[in-house]
Deep mutational scan, measured.
Amino acid sequence: CHSECLGNCSQPDDPTKCVACRNFYLDGRCVETCPPPYYHFQDWRCVNFSFCQDLHHKCKNSRRQGCHQYVIHNNKCIPECPSGYTMNSSNLLCTPCLGPCPKVCHLLEGEKTIDSVTSAQELRGCTVINGSLIINIRGGNNLAAELEANLGLIEEISGYLKIRRSYALVSLSFFRKLRLIRGETLEIGNYSFYALDNQNLRQLWDWSKHNLTITQGKLFFHYNPKLCLSEIHKMEEVSGTKGRQERNDIALKTNGDQASCENELLKFSYIRTSFDKILLRWEPYWPPDFRDLLGFMLFYKEAPYQNVTEFDGQDACGSNSWTVVDIDPPLRSNDPKSQNHPGWLMRGLKPWTQYAIFVKTLVTFSDERRTYGAKSDIIYVQTDATNPSVPLDPISVSNSSSQIILKWKPPSDPNGNITHYLVFWERQAEDSELFELDYCLKGLKLPSRTWSPPFESEDSQKHNQSEYEDSAGECCSCPKTDSQILKELEESSFRKTFEDYLHNVVFVPRKT
Rank of each mutant, 00 (worst) to 15 (best):
L172Y: 02
I271M: 05
V128M: 15
I188M: 14
T241I: 08
A374Y: 14
F311P: 13
W352S: 08
L161A: 05
L153C: 13
T323N: 07
G139T: 04
A374F: 09
L151W: 02
Q314K: 01
D384P: 06
L362C: 10
N340M: 02
G240S: 15
T273V: 15
L265V: 13
K267Y: 15
I357H: 00
A385S: 08
S269W: 03
E264K: 03
L345Q: 09
R281L: 07
Y285W: 14
R347N: 07
G217M: 01
F365R: 08
W408I: 06
V397K: 08
P225E: 14
P284F: 15
D315V: 14
S166P: 03
T241F: 11
E231V: 13
S333L: 10
P287W: 03
E155N: 03
V238W: 14
S260M: 06
G217A: 02
E368I: 12
L172H: 01
P287H: 14
S400W: 04
N334I: 11
R281A: 09
F296K: 00
L229K: 06
N211T: 10
L108I: 09
K234L: 04
K218P: 10
R165E: 02
D257P: 04
F299H: 07
D289L: 06
Q403T: 06
R370N: 12
S239Y: 06
K226S: 05
R370A: 02
F290Y: 14
V390N: 10
T371N: 07
W352L: 12
H106M: 13
V363I: 05
P225S: 04
S116L: 06
T213N: 07
P394I: 04
N248R: 09
M346P: 00
N387H: 14
E155K: 13
L153A: 13
P330S: 11
Q245E: 14
P342G: 15
R332P: 08
Y270T: 01
L201F: 09
G189P: 08
D292A: 06
N150M: 10
S398P: 14
P287R: 07
K103V: 06
V308R: 08
R291V: 14
D276V: 01
I327H: 03
T353V: 05
T323Q: 15
S274C: 05
R332T: 12
D206W: 12
V359R: 01
G131K: 00
G189A: 07
A144D: 02
F365H: 01
F221C: 09
S398Q: 07
I157L: 04
P342D: 10
H106W: 13
G110N: 14
S269M: 05
N136R: 13
N150H: 15
H210W: 03
A356Y: 00
E146T: 06
I188D: 15
Y223P: 00
D367R: 11
T113W: 03
K301E: 05
G348P: 09
W322S: 02
L280F: 04
S158T: 09
Q382T: 10
I271S: 02
V324M: 09
S274Y: 15
G131L: 00
K226W: 13
R370Y: 08
K360S: 12
F221I: 15
P304S: 05
G125D: 08
I404L: 02
T371F: 05
G183H: 01
P391R: 01
V325W: 06
D249V: 12
A120R: 02
T371V: 08
S260G: 05
L186F: 05
R247V: 05
Y380G: 01
G313I: 13
G125P: 01
A303L: 05
R247Q: 11
A316H: 00
L345M: 08
R179D: 05
S398T: 15
P351W: 13
P330L: 13
W286V: 11
L204G: 04
L108E: 11
L252I: 12
R164F: 14
R138K: 08
I163F: 12
Q199W: 14
K267E: 08
E146G: 11
T386W: 12
N320R: 14
I157A: 00
N340A: 09
H233N: 05
N387L: 11
D206G: 09
G343H: 10
I395Q: 08
L178P: 00
T353P: 00
C126N: 01
S398L: 11
L133T: 02
E109T: 10
C126Y: 02
R244L: 11
N255H: 05
T118H: 14
N255M: 11
N334C: 03
R244S: 04
L143H: 02
D312M: 13
V104W: 11
E184W: 10
T113H: 15
P284A: 02
N307Q: 11
T254L: 11
R244H: 14
A303Y: 04
G295L: 11
P288V: 09
E246T: 05
G140Q: 15
P284R: 09
F311W: 15
S402F: 11
G152D: 01
A120W: 07
Y160T: 05
L178F: 03
T353W: 02
S239N: 06
L392S: 13
K177A: 06
Y305G: 12
K242Y: 04
G318Q: 09
V359Q: 00
I404S: 04
Y300C: 15
E231R: 06
N340S: 08
S166E: 02
N211S: 09
G152I: 00
S173G: 08
I232S: 03
F358A: 14
N198W: 00
G183Y: 01
H341W: 11
P351D: 02
L133F: 07
F299D: 01
F365L: 08
L161Q: 00
W322V: 09
S274R: 14
S132R: 01
V359M: 03
L212N: 01
L219R: 03
R165T: 09
V381T: 14
T323W: 15
I188C: 07
L147V: 02
H233S: 09
Y160W: 04
S321H: 10
S166D: 14
T361M: 08
Q354I: 14
L265G: 05
G139L: 09
D377L: 01
I188H: 10
V104N: 00
T241Y: 08
T309L: 08
K242F: 10
P391H: 02
N142S: 12
M346N: 02
A168Y: 13
W282T: 06
N136I: 03
I114K: 00
N248W: 05
L201C: 05
L169V: 08
I114V: 10
S239W: 05
W322K: 00
W344E: 07
S119I: 13
T353Y: 08
K360F: 10
I181Y: 00
E155A: 10
P394H: 05
I405R: 08
T371G: 13
G256D: 05
P284Q: 15
F174D: 01
G373A: 10
G313V: 10
I188S: 05
Y223D: 12
Q216N: 03
I378R: 08
P288F: 08
I188Y: 15
K162T: 02
A259W: 12
Y380V: 13
N211P: 05
I135R: 00
E111V: 05
R138I: 12
T215Q: 07
N399I: 08
S338K: 06
S208L: 14
F268L: 03
R369E: 08
N198H: 01
E237W: 15
R179I: 12
G373N: 03
L280K: 00
T364A: 15
H106C: 04
D289K: 03
P288A: 06
L147F: 13
I327L: 12
